[in-house]
Nucleic acid binder design. Structure first.
Lengths: 225, 225
DNA sequence: GTGCACATGTGACCTGCGCCACTGGCTAGG
DNA sequence: CCTAGCCAGTGGCGCAGGTCACATGTGCAC
C-alpha cells in the first residue's frame, strides 16, 4: 500500500513497479509521534526523507528563541534534500505535527541509485528548483501582503494539499495550532486568531479545532491576492 | 582574462584550463548598459547566464506594481538556473545595475556538457541548494529582524562580495540607489535612508553616492543579528 | 468527578514603519 | 547658464500588527 504514497514523490513517480519496489527495499522506515523531533537544525545528517503518513513541520529557531516555520509537509513530500547537495548541518528542525511515518535514504545510497537514472535525477532537481521558486514567492508575500492576506494564502495552500471537499465546503484538517499557523505566516498568534475570526464572521469559513471548513473559497482567494 | 572570472563560477571551478576554454567557446557573450533589462519575469527562455563583469539585480514585480529584489549578483555569479530544471517562464526580471557583460549557455548545450561530468553537475546543484538555503534565511530575517537590522545585514553581504578594504574602512561600491537597497531588504526608501543616517551618525559607516565605507564592521554586525 | 495544562478568543495599549510632503544637491541636456 | 529630473535627507501622521493581560474552552491524568 505504501507504494501508492511513494508514487507521489518525485523521486519515484517515473519508476515502474519493479524499480519502485527495488528502491523501496533500500530505504529504511521510521515513525514519530505528534510533537517528536526527527532532527534539529544544526544536527549533522545527510539522509533524505519521504513522508509516508502524517504531517511534519520544518522550522527554524531564531537566536532569541522564536520559531518560524518554513513548510508543512504531508504524504509523498520529501525533505532533507538540501543536505544531499550542500553538505553541512541540517538547516531546519523537523517535528511531527501528527503521528507520522517516513521512509529514508542515505546520501550514498541515493547517489548510487541516481547513477544511470537521469530521469529520476531530473525529477529531484526540478523538485528543488520549485522549492526555491516557492521560497521566493513567500518572500514577496512577506513584503507585500498583510497578515490576513498571508493567512488566507496559507489556508488555500493547506486546502489544496490536505483538503477534502464535502457538501458544506472544503474540510481542511491541517492539524496545526493557531500558534503554528502564526509561525508559518510570520505573524503573532493573536493577529492570526483575529484574522481567522474575521473570515469566519464573514461566512467564508468555519473554525474547528486544528482544522477549518472553507465555505467560500472564491472570496478567500480574492482576499489572498 | 575572462577565464579568471569564469573560474569563480561553480560551473567552471573544477575544470582544467583546457576544459574551461572548451566550454567557453560554446558560450555566447552579451552586454548591457546600466538600467537595461536582460529579460522580464514571465518571458520564456532557458539560458543560463554567468556575470562576467558588472552587477545585475534580480527582481520581481507584484500585481500592484511594486518591486522586490531577490538578489544582487556580481562577476562569477550565475542566474537563470531555475529555468533549466524547472521549465517555465522566467521567475524574475534581470536588470543591469551597472554596465555589465555576460556569458550564456543554452539548456541543451549545458546538458550535453554536464553529461559525463558529474563533478561539474554537483557544483551546479550545490549552488542551487545554497541559494535555497539563503532564501530561507531571508524569510527568517523578514519575520524576525527590523528594518535597520536587515539593512545592516544587506550591507555586510554586499561588503563581503564587493568590498575593498582600505585604511579608512571597507569601501563598498554597491552601485545601488537607496530605493533599490530598500527593495532588496523589503522596506521603504525613507526608512532605509533613516537607518543609514543613523548608522552614519554613530560612526559605523560613511555614506557616499551609490556606495558606503564601513568603518566599524564589528558594531554593524552586532546590529545585524 | 477535580485540577492542570494547553489552546482559543478578545480587548487595550504602544510602536515601527509605510506613506506623504517637502527640501536640497547633482547630473544632463538644452 | 538655466531648467528638469533623479536621488538623498528629514519631519509628521496614521495604522497594522506586536506585546500584554485576561477570559473561556477543552482534553487528559489522576
Amino acid at each position: 500500500m505504501d507504494n501508492d504514497v511513494l508514487r507521489q514523490a518525485p523521486l519515484f513517480s517515473a519508476l515502474d513497479d519493479e524499480a519502485a519496489t527495488a528502491l523501496r527495499t533500500s530505504m529504511s522506515e521510521s515513525r514519530l509521534q505528534r510533537g517528536d523531533v526527527l532532527f534539529h537544525e544544526g544536527d549533522s545528517g545527510d539522509k533524505l526523507y519521504i513522508v509516508l503518513d502524517g504531517k511534519v513541520k520544518l522550522g527554524r529557531t531564531s537566536s532569541d528563541g522564536r520559531e518560524n516555520l518554513l513548510a508543512i509537509l504531508g504524504p509523498g513530500q520529501m525533505f532533507g534534500e538540501l543536505s544531499l547537495f550542500d553538505p553541512g548541518p541540517r538547516s531546519a528542525t523537523v517535528t511531527a505535527v501528527t503521528d507520522a511515518a517516513f521512509a529514508s535514504l542515505s546520501h550514498d545510497d541515493l547517489l548510487r541509485w541516481l547513477e544511470g537514472r537521469p530521469v529520476v535525477a531530473r525529477g529531484l532537481l526540478s523538485q528543488i528548483a520549485s522549492r526555491l521558486r516557492k521560497a521566493n514567492d513567500v518572500n514577496a508575500d512577506l513584503v507585500f501582503s498583510d497578515v490576513p492576506g498571508r493567512v488566507a494564502k496559507a489556508l488555500l495552500d493547506l486546502a489544496d494539499r490536505f483538503g477534502r471537499t464535502a457538501d458544506d465546503g472544503v474540510h481542511v484538517h491541517h492539524d496545526l495550532t493557531q500558534e503554528e499557523l502564526a509561525q508559518l505566516v510570520g505573524a503573532s498568534r493573536e493577529t492570526v486568531n483575529k484574522a481567522l475570526a474575521d473570515f469566519a464572521s464573514r461566512g467564508w469559513l468555519r473554525l474547528e479545532p486544528r482544522s477549518v471548513v472553507i465555505m467560500d473559497i472564491e472570496r478567500l482567494a480574492r482576499r489572498a491576492r
